[in-house]
């Protein structure tokens, strides 16, 4: 319990550090900060916007006062104003969070479930052709650029075969009277290709990792004990082997959550998925720096939280760690 409290505190400090780091980045950016922040706004409204930003950030104040104001603002959900969207940044970001999380978690579930299944099957026949092919598969999965995988999937399944939708999260022609179930099914169809593009990067490496860890577990004495008890292979694999074999995978999950969300930016861009990544891409095009910074903060915080969650999950799965330290 104490260990978890320490972890939570550390996570909070990390989030603070990210915010400070962001501020320093803006501070160091060349040219007028106001120019950097209002970036894409031209014409009549510009001076007005610049004035607004100056007041908001209190640019006449010394560095540390500005910093503290900035931290306070961010912690209360105030990420400033977007001259492009002509709205507070938080209003632009809020509706984008759910689609990104949905995509990321689906991709993660896809990669973990299929990867662990493939890896476990391969571990039961470690010398088979299938098992050897896994390494090649892992190398290929790693080497394919995400956006390229996405475009290939669009070409093959969306255009040539015309099986699945390739753009957005819902069919625009879906009648507004459509019920929740119909809407959810439509979203699910739109999710398939983005999920695969994003999941494939991890799928192969999880399969390889779980194969190695399953191989080790299957040779352990407690698996022999479970078999000697008279358990059939199903419970031996699922109850006794799997729970031990997923421990190393959980560790990797947390560490790779950042990579997952980075990949989501590319996948969302390819599939016009209305998430944070797509917003980040648009913000790059329009030089909407405030939005970019806010997304960076939000996503970093998400990664830190994901790390915290995996850390706790790790303790739940492995009693040696949970009860081991006082």
């Amino acid at each position: 319990m104490k260990a978890i409290a320490v972890k939570i505190f550390e996570s909070f400090l990390l989030i603070l550090a990210v915010i400070v780091f962001n501020f320093v980045l803006i501070y160091l950016a060349p040219g007028d900060v106001v120019d950097a922040l209002s970036g894409g706004a031209f014409g009549d409204g510009r001076e007005e916007i610049n004035q607004l930003i100056r007041e908001q950030m209190g640019l006449d104040q010394p560095f540390h006062v500005q910093l503290i104001t900035y931290i306070g603002n961010v912690l209360t959900g105030d990420f400033g104003f977007s001259p492009i969207g002509n709205r507070p940044v938080i209003e632009m970001i809020a509706p984008r969070i759910f689609p990104t999380l949905l995509l990321a978690l689906c991709a993660l579930a896809f990669a973990v479930i299929i990867g662990v299944t493939i890896g476990s099957i391969a571990a039961r026949r470690p010398t088979s052709f299938f098992s050897g092919g896994l390494t090649v598969f892992a190398l290929i999965g790693f080497a394919m650029p995400v956006f390229w995988t996405g475009i290939l999937l669009v070409l093959v399944f969306g255009v040539w075969l015309d099986w699945l939708p390739v753009s957005g999260m819902n069919n625009l022609r879906l009648s507004s009277s459509a019920g929740f179930v119909e809407r959810a099914l439509d979203t699910a169809r739109h999710l398939v290709l983005p999920t695969i593009s994003l999941g494939v990067i991890f799928l192969a490496s999880y399969a390889r990792l779980s194969r190695a860890s399953m191989l080790e577990v299957l040779q352990s004495d407690y698996i022999r004990t479970a078999r000697a008890k008279g358990l059939s292979e199903g419970p031996v694999m699922i109850k006794h082997a799997l729970r031990n074999a997923v421990i190393p995978i959980i560790t990797v999950l947390g560490m790779e959550f950042g990579v997952l969300l980075s990949g989501a930016i590319l996948v969302e861009t390819v599939f016009n998925w209305p998430g944070l990544g797509r917003l980040a891409f648009e913000a790059v095009l329009t030089r909407d720096t405030n939005v970019l910074l806010a997304i960076l903060t939000m996503v970093s915080a998400t990664v830190i939280l994901a790390n915290l969650v995996t850390d706790i999950a790790y303790r739940l799965v492995d009693p040696r760690i949970r009860i081991g330290d006082v």
Binding site: L292, L296, V303
Partner: peptide
Amino acid sequence: QVLPGLLFALV
């Protein structure tokens, strides 16, 4: 390590 790489580079 916790900073999401691509997003950071974008910024």
